[in-house]
Design a protein around this nucleic acid. Structure first.
Length: 416
RNA sequence: GGGGGAGUGUCCCGAGUGGCAAAGGGGGCGGAUUGUAAAUCCGCUGGCUUACGCCUUCGUAGGUUCGAGUCCUACCUCCCCCA
């Protein structure tokens, strides 16, 4: 990878985002010469975005920091098709209402990471349903479809892999790349957008758009992809205590979000600091070089910075403090997740099994029983050995009972 | 339209002579060890139950049988070959 002249590409590469570029020198020259609008598309398949999407958002953020103009394309239209890239099975089709609801929630998230407005480097957000919904089949086939050969489409990884693995690919999904290609060309016409970024799995779709625009508008557009971010142990990143690592506080609390970053593997700390925070590279290099237990300090910085970007500095500090009290103070933090129960139940004595299940720590009484057998449950930090234990008022500490599953999952039971 | 094959524990893959709560993986969770890390080792991984035990599960619906994941019939879905 040669040195870049443009600040954006330099930073982009230095932070580990660079995978492939359709015309590296051409793009670098263009970025150095004029302000470039670049986009990334996001489909609205889930009610929140997760950290997989965050890697993309951070790339747009870098684009903005580099003095260029980011465009967020929300896939109100393409979500109706479903991207087959990298998947073995079709995603279940969402209703228009679900897509719309998801879209509104996503837009709120983009605003936290990017500055929107009318200024030259302010981000803008557009919905590809604006043009895709209006397309008419026959005119579209004649104008756009004639630029695509089945031969090439079938050779695309997104299609080829599905066929090779003998998994069905519907005609609907087969069309996805055409729509994404059309998006790029349309964004060029509407906003002069010259650049599309995306994960490495988007290469084929991006190149299709570049080809299309060259044929229809005789212009060179650019594609820039990033490596798929995995954990050092090879897993696709993004699993937290409660499933995916969501960016919406109502789907994953700032505390759990903070904990996710606090718990990344040692080997990932430097890489993640570069991708998911704005810290200067020399500072990251210093943190990354920490040895042994000191690595925990680097992880705290990662957690603080990443959480502050997503949920605000105040929430990050709160999560850090809750974590400090819980893990380092050995004490009780009132900020842990709390489940309320009727006061009577404590007065009468509440069975431990039910209590853990109510708190959401175990999935059933049987599960709770098994966890007790395995030594995994604690009440007020003391291991539960008797599954018939009744929780009564004398277990209250500062008005709550602390239930724990393993070392990391804690819930406060609060009588009301 | 004709012929052949397949759907198994609600995370996934996958074995399964009529006696099966159903082999084995992966993943996940817990324990030990650690640094809230990795690696390693151990345990758990359908529901209810103090317990004997009871209930629910193998694409769907029926049937044969003391007894069905396993045999029969119909239907659904998917894959392959022929037209």
């Amino acid at each position: 990878m040669s040195a870049f002249r443009s600040p954006f590409l330099t930073e982009f590469a230095a932070r580990g985002h660079f995978h492939q570029c359709t015309n590296q020198d051409g793009l670098d020259a263009l970025l150095s010469k004029e302000r470039v609008a670049g986009y990334i598309g996001f489909d609205c398949t889930a009610p929140s975005l997760h950290i997989g999407n965050l890697t993309q958002i951070m790339r747009l953020r870098l684009l903005q920091k580099g003095g260029q103009k980011p465009i967020v394309v929300v896939g109100g239209g393409t979500t109706k098709i479903g991207d087959p890239s990298g998947k073995d099975e079709s995603r279940q089709l969402l209703t228009d209402a679900q897509i719309e609801a998801n879209k509104v929630r996503h837009m709120e998230i983009y605003r936290r990471f990017l500055k929107f407005g009318d200024g030259p480097t302010d981000a803008i957000m557009v919905d590809n349903a604006e043009w895709l919904d209006k397309l008419q089949y026959v005119p579209f086939l004649r104008d756009i479809g004639r630029h695509f050969t089945i031969n090439r489409m079938v050779a695309m990884d997104s299609v080829k892999l599905r066929l090779e693995r003998e998994q069905p690919l519907t005609f609907l999904e087969f069309n996805y790349m055409i729509f994404q290609a059309y998006d790029f060309a349309e964004l060029y016409r509407r906003y002069g957008c010259r650049l599309q970024m995306g994960g490495s799995d988007q290469w084929g779709n991006i190149v299709s758009g570049i080809d299309l625009a060259r044929r229809t508008d005789n212009v060179e557009l650019f594609g820039l992809t990033s490596p798929l971010i995995t954990t050092s142990s090879g897993a696709k990143m993004g699993k937290s205590v409660s499933g995916a690592v969501w960016l919406s506080a109502d789907m994953l609390s700032p505390y759990d979000y903070w904990q996710y970053w606090r718990n990344v593997e040692d080997a990932d700390v430097g890489r993640f600091l570069r991708i998911f925070t704005d810290l200067p590279l020399d500072e990251i290099a210093r943190l990354e070089a920490l040895k042994g237990a000191e690595m925990n300090d680097a992880k705290k910085v990662l957690a603080n910075e990443a959480t502050a970007l997503c949920h605000g500095r105040a929430e990050a500090e709160r999560a850090a403090e809750t974590s400090r009290q819980t893990f380092e103070g050995g004490g009780l933090s009132a900020d842990l997740p709390t489940v309320e129960i009727p006061k009577d139940e404590i007065v009468n004595g509440l069975g431990v099994l039910g209590a853990f299940t109510r708190a959401g720590l175990t999935s059933s009484n049987g599960d709770a029983r098994r966890q007790i057998a395995g030594g995994g449950l604690r009440v007020n930090d003391e291991a539960v050995t008797d599954e018939k234990l009744l929780l009564r008022a004398e277990y209250l500490r500062e008005g709550v009972i602390k239930l724990s599953l393993g070392k990391k999952k804690h819930v406060l039971l609060k009588p009301v």
